[in-house]
Design a binder for these strands. Structure first.
Lengths: 163, 163
DNA sequence: AGTAAATACTTGCGTGAGCAAGTAGATGCG
DNA sequence: CGCATCTACTTGCTCACGCAAGTATTTACT
């Protein structure tokens, strides 16, 4: 945490560069998610939310994750995750399996069908991300940018994500 | 535009640093807007969407902007903007005024009440943005970060924003 | 063992936003 | 001058999501 440099005065007006950054970030936050989702829908018939869930499940050991964990890695509320998994389940891309060591826990498990779906969809996602984002950035800058974004930690002591 | 360096092969898999960047950005995009909105609602009783509209109107010459322009600067669809302005109008913070030089155009105009409301709310917004974002970043990095974000241009030839 | 509290997940409900279709006014063309 | 087209905005519809409340199961305390 690179704070504690200046005295705690949270109400200093934004400098010009701060202002510029906040607006640029706001623009990306408002427009980029839907742009990628639109690409996914049009070219792969798979919403970004479902793609993301499948992707994380496919990367998890055994292809399964607790609802909780899945929600966290997808940056979704638990109830939102429930619905995404419902949709995926109806399509046969995941199954729910009771958690062995905790009777109230459930695992979402990718099916082979789900993996196949993912396989079919990833080029679209990749192309979208490249076209909207990475094509416009200098690879040299990425580590620094990533580091900066990782320091932005929303939800620390403010409102919060489901119950 | 720092592209045209490598041949047009949009399907190269993501490198590790690209992957990291995309995930970090995804996290911020998913979580930050609601975090700030929650702060605004809790501490200023004014949603971020309405705050943003008032802010842009207050900065515009004459305190008015065409629905069109307002939607653009707020990064909102035109129909979404219609509803935000409806809400603001009901509260007396803006008025609609017919556009002189174009009979089908409407201006959203901030009222004095609206300006007062903005005046009351900006400290909350400022604190939220500082707490969630700027406190965690090195001011030295801001120009570079802003520049990078500005190069990310969503919606170029993909789906798009209302009709 | 038995009850109270915490946890894991789902469901009910409300809200905000985009798309598509509708309306009203402007522009162009014959 | 009249009709077709285009533009600016609004409204109908749908949907995804978060929050709060509900259910089931585990943990903690006595």
């Amino acid at each position: 945490m690179p704070s504690a440099e200046r005295p705690p005065s949270p109400l200093t007006p934004l400098s010009a560069s701060e202002e510029g950054f906040v607006r640029a970030l706001g623009r990306v936050m408002m427009l980029l998610p839907r742009a990628v989702d639109t690409d996914m829908l049009r070219d792969a018939q798979l919403p970004l939310s479902e793609y993301t869930a499948l992707m994380h499940l496919s990367e998890a050991p055994g292809g399964h994750l607790r609802m909780n964990e899945l929600a966290t890695v997808c940056n979704l509320s638990l109830s939102g995750m429930t619905r995404v998994v419902n949709r995926l389940e109806k399509q046969g891309f995941v199954q729910r399996a009771k958690c062995d060591e905790d009777g109230r826990g459930w695992n979402a498990v990718v099916t082979d069908q789900g993996l196949a779906r993912l396989e079919k969809a990833w080029p679209t996602h990749l192309a979208s991300v490249r076209r909207h984002v990475l094509d416009h950035l200098d690879p040299e800058d990425l580590p620094r940018l990533t580091d900066a974004l990782r320091h932005i930690v929303p939800g620390v002591g403010s409102g919060g994500r489901d119950a």
